[in-house]
């Protein structure tokens, strides 16, 4: 087990260098001179430009710059924004907000997927199954930004049950509406996985054996049917975790949530290279870690999987 974790972390190293290299290379290849951009319309003194170039190591060859950047990243120095703020600080402020939002979305998605999937699977072909499938299809067909506007308008403005915008002080309660709304638009995949595995498990030999022992469905359904069906759903949910973190831009924009998505979006618009590169790198590292955790979770869920 320990060996497996070590192995997976070692595997993450080339992934880390690969992605950061690609990101850095792409930013490096972008047209325009960052030093000149700092001066806006004014024409700077060539000596000052040279000094700045040296200060930011821009006079060095590309590969040297890349390793300087990696060294800084690994020592925890993410650089500074144009306004002089440390990127570390900006990230530390934005990240908890996005984490809260995504956690709400993921938990809600999981509950919806398992609940409706189990209902549909157990009542296959009956009214409840058709209704649940139709509902999921309708919700899935609405683009997330439309769903978010609808939720914001009806629940936030018309009914006044939830804050319309989140603003600087992002509490769990304030993030509930956007989080659940995202979940509603994406739970269909997990729900269909759950439904499929429940249908398969119900006809499974071990389920028949469980009934033959003299157990009632009250015990067989959760212990033998649902338990075995969870594995693909959890995989799907965990995989969406990374995608959600990266994809919060639209949600955070609509609900004015000061999370990673919004900061990243603003940074791209303003061309703040240090912020963009550092954020994307951190997200990459997080994505790798989440995936390792998901793989380890498999062993808990399915004892047949052993890490060697």
């Amino acid at each position: 087990m320990t060996l497996y974790v070590v192995k997976r972390l070692l595997q993450a190293i080339p992934v880390f260098f690969g992605t950061t290299f690609i990101i850095y290379f792409m930013v490096f290849s972008m047209p325009g001179d960052p030093i000149l951009a700092m001066f806006g319309d004014r024409t700077p003194n060539p000596a000052v430009v040279e000094a700045l170039r040296e200060q930011y190591n821009l006079d060095q060859p590309f590969i040297v710059q890349y390793f300087i950047y990696i060294k800084d990243f690994l020592t925890g120095n993410l650089g500074a924004t144009f306004s002089g703020q440390s990127v570390n600080e900006v990230f530390a402020r934005a990240f908890p907000v996005t984490l809260k939002l995504v956690t709400i979305a993921v938990v809600a998605e999981f509950i919806l997927a398992v609940g409706f999937g189990l209902l549909s699977g157990l009542r296959k072909g009956k009214f409840a199954d058709h209704a649940s499938l139709l509902l999921a299809l309708v919700l899935n067909s609405i683009p997330p930004f439309v769903a978010l506007f609808i939720a914001q308008y009806f629940i936030g403005i018309k009914l006044g049950w939830a804050p319309v915008t989140v603003g600087a002080n992002a509490t769990w309660g304030a993030l509930l509406l956007p989080g659940v709304t995202i979940a509603l638009t994406i739970y269909v995949v997990g729900m269909r996985l759950m439904r499929g595995s429940v249908i398969e498990a119900r006809e499974g030999d071990y389920v028949r054996t469980a009934y033959a022992k003299g157990l009632t469905s009250k015990r067989v359904t959760p212990v033998h049917v649902a338990r075995n069906s969870l594995i693909p759903v959890i995989t799907n949910t965990a995989a969406s975790f990374g995608a959600l973190i990266a994809g919060t831009t639209v949600t955070e924009g609509i609900f004015n949530i000061p999370g990673i998505g919004k900061v990243l979006y603003d940074a791209i618009i303003r061309g703040e290279i240090p912020t963009v590169v550092s954020f994307v790198t951190i997200l990459t590292v997080m994505y790798i870690i989440v995936n390792i955790l998901v793989d380890l979770l498999y062993a808990v869920l399915d004892p047949r999987i052993r890490y060697v």
Partner: peptide, 25 residues
């Protein structure tokens, strides 16, 4: 039926590979 199954009629199935739930000891 649950009171008959197991207690009065026991059952040994055909395929030992698929008749035990893989996720429980």
């Amino acid at each position: 039926m649950a009171s008959i199954r197991g207690g009065i009629i026991g059952y040994v199935p055909q395929d030992p590979m698929s008749n035990l739930n893989p996720v429980w000891s």
